[in-house]
Simulated scan of single mutants.
Amino acid sequence: MYHAIVRSLVRRTWRRVSAGDFDAAVAMAHPDIRFRFVGDTALGADIRGRESFRKWFSALERHLPGVRLDLVDVVADGWPWNTKVATQLRVTATLADGTSYCNTAIQWLTLRWGRMIEDLVLEDTLALDAALRTKHAIEHR
């Protein structure tokens, strides 16, 4: 029963995030969250704190305006004080040159009493880097 509640909470949060309400994820974060977005791109991060987490979402929106993060699947396991959640996300956006960006991200969360204390995101950084380079090239024409 507990894991069904966690999956429902995660689904509800991702619906809001996908609609552009990034504060829904920030609100779920512990004040000292550790967030890591793996990769050597403009979005790569290893940060702590809710405000830094909020700023990362601002950077995401700045680099990929109109980005959508759609939840494909979610699994949860563990106890309320140490819940592990894995999600699969579909990431889509329209790049500045009009082409579509589509990627897959895997997220590994650790929740404590319903708050994210760790968030690790893995995305195909080769595809992401190409998209960010396209944006950069158009801006500097």
Rank of each mutant, 00 (worst) to 15 (best):
G98I: 04
R133V: 01
W81G: 12
A27D: 11
Y101H: 13
H136E: 15
L128K: 02
L126A: 14
D77I: 11
F22R: 09
V91L: 08
D97G: 07
I106A: 05
V75T: 15
I5Y: 06
D77W: 15
F37C: 10
K84G: 13
R54N: 01
L95R: 10
W81V: 12
G20P: 01
M116I: 13
Y2H: 03
R15I: 13
R90M: 10
D73P: 06
T87I: 05
N103E: 03
V38C: 11
A130E: 06
T110C: 01
A45K: 05
V85P: 02
R133T: 10
V17K: 01
W14C: 15
V75E: 12
L43I: 07
A4H: 13
G66T: 03
P65C: 10
I5V: 07
T41D: 08
P65V: 00
D77R: 15
D23S: 07
G78S: 11
W79C: 13
L9T: 11
T125W: 03
A96R: 15
Y101F: 11
D70Q: 07
E139T: 02
E123I: 13
A131E: 01
E118S: 08
R112Y: 03
F57T: 04
V26I: 06
M28C: 05
L95S: 05
F35L: 13
L128A: 03
W108C: 11
D32H: 10
K135D: 02
L109A: 04
V85I: 15
L111Y: 02
W14D: 08
W79N: 15
A131C: 00
L120Y: 10
R12S: 10
H63Y: 15
V10T: 06
L89Y: 02
F53H: 04
F35E: 00
T104Q: 08
Y2K: 14
T104K: 04
I138M: 09
V67E: 00
L120P: 01
V91A: 09
A29T: 05
W113G: 06
R62T: 15
I117W: 03
E123T: 10
P80G: 10
T99D: 13
A127G: 04
N82D: 07
A27P: 03
F22I: 07
R62W: 04
L9E: 11
M28V: 05
L43R: 12
A24Y: 08
R7K: 09
D73N: 15
P65F: 01
A131R: 02
W113I: 08
L64W: 00
V91G: 00
R15D: 12
R62K: 09
